[in-house]
């Protein structure tokens, strides 16, 4: 037993000597996570307290699971949970495949110049700040905005599109696709460039058409990347970002747009109910981990690579 430990220790030391510069390189990243993620995790305890900033973590009274009970009894509980799932699922179904499709299409383009131009143009929206994107959306959707101009030109009625419940998800998802399709496709394009060209030649000799090649060679070739990103995405299923929703919703659309993160924001930052907000956030994270692990397992079962 001791021998085994000594052997392992020896191995570690030897590995460290051999790769010391690599360890040095990774150090800042490790420190980053330790300081900003792990150290901050200590704050989770306030979910079980009635926290007051003036009393601090050590001085605030403990209340057990009180904050969680409050959340489950909260009239907004089912609503924010339902909306979060809906938005997440919609973006997995529609927004997730979009960059894959773009990458596949770009891959078929033989003209380098066109390919690059399209890539650059589709990247660009990614670099626009979210606030600006949302104010563009606002002005497009206003009654005197561009979309309504088109509707009116065909004789339709002008609507304030952001005040209509049924249009919130389409606006949210489509603008998300527009903003991120180019950027998200980079990783697939990188994977595509790694596919052995000989396979295509062999397929062509065997008489496979373009579509056939795409289905039988290209897609399997990038499948590991797709499944890995899907696993990551599923790990965030309950983490719909609050910024964009906060910038787009209004009292008319709260019912479909209010999600866990916006609720946490309102509770924590506006009502300064820190303990409650932390409890909701913790609940959120636990569900996320559950999804991440499940998806990872499934991915492995189906013969694809998992994260761990």
């Amino acid at each position: 037993m001791t021998q085994k430990i000594a052997l392992a220790a020896h191995k570690v030391v030897r590995d460290f000597r051999k790769n010391k510069y690599r360890y040095l390189l990774v150090l800042p990243v490790v420190l980053f996570f330790l300081i900003f993620d792990y150290k901050a995790m200590y704050g989770i305890v306030i979910a079980f307290q009635k926290y007051r900033t003036s009393a601090g973590i050590s001085g605030s009274p403990w209340v057990g699971l009180y904050n969680f009970q409050r959340f489950f009894k909260d009239i907004n509980f089912w609503r924010v949970l339902r909306n979060t799932f809906t938005i997440s699922m919609l973006s997995i179904v529609f927004a997730f495949p979009a960059p894959i499709l773009l990458a596949l299409l770009l891959n078929e383009v033989r003209n380098k110049w066109i390919k690059r131009t399209v890539q650059t143009i589709t990247y660009m929206p990614h670099f626009i700040a979210l606030v600006i994107v949302c104010s563009i959306i606002h002005s497009f959707c206003q009654t005197n905005g561009a979309i309504n101009d088109i509707i009116a030109a065909f004789g339709g009625e002008r609507l304030n599109m952001l005040s209509i419940k049924g249009l919130f998800y389409p606006i949210y998802i489509l603008s998300g696709i527009w903003q991120n399709i180019g950027w998200d496709s980079i990783i697939y394009l990188a994977a595509l460039s790694g596919i052995d060209q000989e396979q295509y030649e062999a397929a062509r000799v065997d008489g496979a058409g373009r579509i056939r090649q795409m289905i039988s060679i290209t897609l399997p070739g990038i499948m590991p990347t797709i499944s890995m990103l899907l696993v990551l995405k599923l790990g965030h299923v309950l983490s719909v970002g609050y910024e964009k929703i906060l910038l787009l919703y209004n009292p008319m659309t709260y019912e479909v747009a209010d999600v866990i993160s916006t609720y946490v924001y309102r509770k924590g930052m506006i009502d300064t109910d820190f303990s409650y907000a932390t409890a909701i956030g913790l609940f959120n994270s636990v569900i996320n981990i559950f999804f991440l692990l499940t998806a990872n397992k499934l991915s492995k079962k189906m013969g694809q690579s998992g994260l761990f």
Partner: peptide
């Protein structure tokens, strides 16, 4: 071999992206 190479590039790239995104969000 090739497959594992994909895997490594995949992880590296996605890790980089996550880091970039996290940076943007928190900055």
């Amino acid at each position: 071999m090739r497959k594992s190479l994909h895997k490594i590039t995949g992880i590296a790239l996605s890790a980089a992206m996550i880091a970039v995104l996290a940076g943007c969000g928190n900055g």
